[in-house]
Nucleic acid binder design. Structure first.
Lengths: 116, 116
DNA sequence: CTCATCTACAACCATACGGTTGTATGTTAG
DNA sequence: CTAACATACAACCGTATGGTTGTAGATGAG
């Protein structure tokens, strides 16, 4: 049973989110400990608003959720997003492996018919 | 020993390349069998030039190479690119797992000190 | 209460991106 | 040789992206 019901647009957003070094760094930091948006922003040579936008991109990609704590907004990584992206890439590798196996099988078959 | 020597820009290009449904479809097709650029272009409701650009993006991301065969250019998937991207995502998941383990260890430690 | 802090969001700007058309070049078929 | 085909690439266009500044609303500290 397939649980992954990702539209093309969903997958676009997912990989797009990873396609920026600042956003990947935000994920790295949020993975190891809790950070507020301003706590994250302190690490980058850009405005708070810019970091806020990056977090929003990660949020739209379902890679991150924000949890209100007092006046702060805690950014937590949503592991499922990470896993979905990884599985997609594994899927491509699996297709490749099938192709290799298929070709190997054909070669073996040919060899059986007329060994060179 | 670390073999992956990917700059931020490299990784940007890698994920950016995946962030488009047409490019992902090109990869899917090229994974299962050989296609020329025009052979690929025949499948999409866009100009040949547009498909050519998509292939160029995949090429710059080292996800694909072109091999000249007569007047055609055969697009082949470069498996390493795929694997590198997948490993990056696995790395994030590993960090998450370490965090979970670390927290579990702390909780176990606390329990040892003062069992609730 | 008052002030500093954290967040949200709009407006703006430069550049990148995904698409188009058009032109040029190389290669194969007849 | 000529015609058709596959590719390459430049120029252009609209929109998205990544950044800025500025304004405004909640919340916590003193």
């Amino acid at each position: 049973m397939v649980v992954d019901e990702l539209s093309d647009a969903d997958v676009d957003r997912l990989f797009q989110a990873f396609a920026d070094a600042t956003r990947r760094d935000i994920i790295s930091r949020a993975l190891v400990s809790d950070f507020s948006v301003s706590g994250l922003a302190a690490h980058y040579a850009m405005s708070f608003a810019a970091v806020q936008k990056h977090v929003a991109v990660l949020e739209r990609a379902s890679l991150v959720t924000k949890e209100k704590r007092g006046r702060e907004q805690i950014v937590r990584v949503h592991l499922d997003g990470l896993r979905r992206a990884r599985r997609l890439l594994e899927g491509y590798e699996a297709i490749w492996r099938q192709r290799v196996d298929r070709i190997s099988a054909i070669l073996a078959e040919e060899e059986g018919k007329s060994p060179s």
